[in-house]
Design a protein around this nucleic acid. Structure first.
Length: 278
DNA sequence: AGATGAGCCTGAAGGC
DNA sequence: TGCCTTCAGGCTCATC
């Protein structure tokens, strides 16, 4: 499910709930998700104050005062639910794999039907040396980490398609299948075009449109196709603003003449307008 | 270097 | 209604 905007939405909801607090208990309802859960998770983290909740690419990072960081990836179908223990509103599910209870009586549930997500633990200082963090590209929304020129430099040696390039987390971090198609449409660039054919100006336009589409999606609480819900139970609503994703055969809303096409690149669906995107 | 396919899983949707 | 197939927001590994 979650690309950068959805993870950011979850991060922004968790931050005020968790920062300055601690976990009273961490209940694991199975032994693993994609990977086995860290051993002694509760022992390592319970009662230790949480310093910060942040996001890197599609990863949630929770830093504890004892110099450990909980790495939390939501996989394809992961969902975080925040409830006050005195006002529970969602029915429990067989896919509620982890339940955190905080020191001020909040219940944080991690629900993930497909179980592609995972929790890992790392010393905070060593995080940057750990895969995949040691190979991740820059954050697209951090202007101190990326600009038109540096983005152009990162893609100008790539002979593969623009769509594949945007999905490569080592080139730029956090973009997934939805927002790659949407950003390329907004920039009038074909997903099939080799990345190394972009001139500086075009790379700048693409970066600007990546930032626009991600910022709009964050403001809308992300996109809810089926699995993504905000931690308070609301849906995101950016899916109503999709210009190409899931819009196969509808008329392109720019030229209003040619239909949106769908093709498979690297095993993933790509949507685009063959007339407007060059 | 890049493309492709498989694998990790469940569940929704569509075809018959 | 029910069975079957296909597909889905991510990531990693093996192979060509």
């Amino acid at each position: 499910m979650p690309e950068l905007p959805e993870v950011e939405t979850v991060c922004q909801a968790l931050r005020p709930v968790l920062e300055g607090q601690s976990f009273l208990s961490i209940q694991l309802n199975r032994s693993n998700l994609r990977y086995p859960f860290p051993s002694n998770l509760e022992k390592e983290l319970a009662s230790h104050p949480i310093i910060s909740v942040r996001r890197r690419a599609k990863y949630l990072l929770i830093d504890f005062k004892n110099n450990l960081t909980l790495i939390w990836h939501l996989g394809m179908s992961g969902r975080v639910i925040i409830e006050n223990v005195n006002a529970l509103f969602l029915k429990p599910s067989p896919h509620d794999h982890v339940v955190f209870i905080t020191s001020h009586h909040y219940k944080i549930t991690y629900r993930d039907p497909r179980r592609f997500g995972f929790l890992l633990l790392s010393p905070t200082q060593e995080l940057e040396d750990l895969r995949p963090f040691n190979t991740l590209g820059p954050e697209p929304l951090d202007n101190s980490k990326i600009n038109a020129s540096s983005f152009h430099n990162r893609i100008k040696s790539r002979s593969t398609s623009l769509k594949s390039t945007l999905l490569d987390q080592a080139v730029i971090a956090g973009i997934g299948n939805i927002y790659a198609s949407e950003a390329l449409w907004q920039a009038w660039l074909s997903p099939l075009r080799p990345a190394n054919t972009l001139i500086l100006n075009e790379a700048g336009i693409l970066l600007r449109e990546i930032q626009n589409v991600l910022n709009c999606a964050i403001a809308a609480g992300g996109s809810t196709l089926r699995d993504h819900f905000r931690p308070n139970g609301d849906r995101g609503y950016f899916q109503h603003q999709f210009k190409v994703y899931n819009q196969e055969n509808k008329l392109c809303s720019h030229c209003n003449f040619f239909p949106i096409l769908k093709l498979i690149q690297n095993g993933r669906s790509t949507y685009y307008c063959n007339h407007c995107q060059k």
